[in-house]
Design a protein around this nucleic acid. Structure first.
Lengths: 121, 121
DNA sequence: AATATATATGAACATATAAACATATATAAA
DNA sequence: TTTATATATGTTTATATGTTCATATATATT
């Protein structure tokens, strides 16, 4: 309705540090890139998925083994693996009626390890 | 009810690779550690928070500047900063009635950068 | 061909959580 | 000490999403 008052619940008329605000506005990531990044990190922000990522970072596994090791239903495992696939976190390999999954690249293992070290401090 | 059939929706009676299953079960992180790790990564898995993390990784900022730069309400900004504080992602510095926030350590910047590089491939 | 089994997936449901709104707190300025 | 302002927070509501259940698909085995 009113461009200047779109968000009322913010610091009043006066911008605190106009120079800093202007400078940083130019350095912002695009909304699209920020969104993609948050969606990517969302993958790691779920207990079931992080457990799957952990075991897959140890070795390639079939769906049944993953679900048995982690005590997760086949359906839930498969649903989560689909998400991991879609975001390029895990990659599938088909062998007969079995599907084997592994971590798709070293970036993923780095992020996992980095986070694990951080919370272990 | 039935220990052996707690989860029916999994591979049938036969475990596919008993040796692998037994080996990996021993290498599992504790449930607590996995949970903490997923909660930690959850911080990065939200558009608003990842945008706050981005600007804070550029420089220390007061709440009002953050909300102005990102066009987020003061309330929403403060709520998210509370979460970032609680998980040791951002640290506050008080100066009069102003609160300045900055990224609490290099681990956070690494994870952010690592993720950004990954999605940029 | 019929059956068994490993995996995938659509839909429903329950839960988690981010944003808005209202209001409280704390400090500065008058 | 009264007012203004920067930040914090409790509550409500809307939305997102993980799990379950039922079922489909694909391959192997008989």
């Amino acid at each position: 309705m009113n461009g200047e008052n779109e968000i009322l619940d913010r610091c009043e008329e006066t911008i605190i540090h106009p120079d800093i605000v202007e400078k940083l506005k130019k350095e912002l990531l695009t909304e699209q890139k920020s969104y993609n990044l948050s969606e990517f990190f969302k993958i790691f922000g779920d207990l079931t998925r992080i457990r799957i990522i952990q075991v897959l970072s140890l070795q390639e596994l079939c769906v049944c083994d993953i679900s048995t090791i982690l005590n997760i239903s086949q359906s839930a495992t498969s649903h989560q693996l689909k998400i991991l696939r879609q975001f390029g976190v895990a990659k599938p390999r088909k062998d007969g009626k079995m599907m084997y999954y592994s971590i798709s690249d070293e970036h993923i293992k780095s992020i996992f390890t980095n986070g694990l070290e951080h919370i272990s401090e």
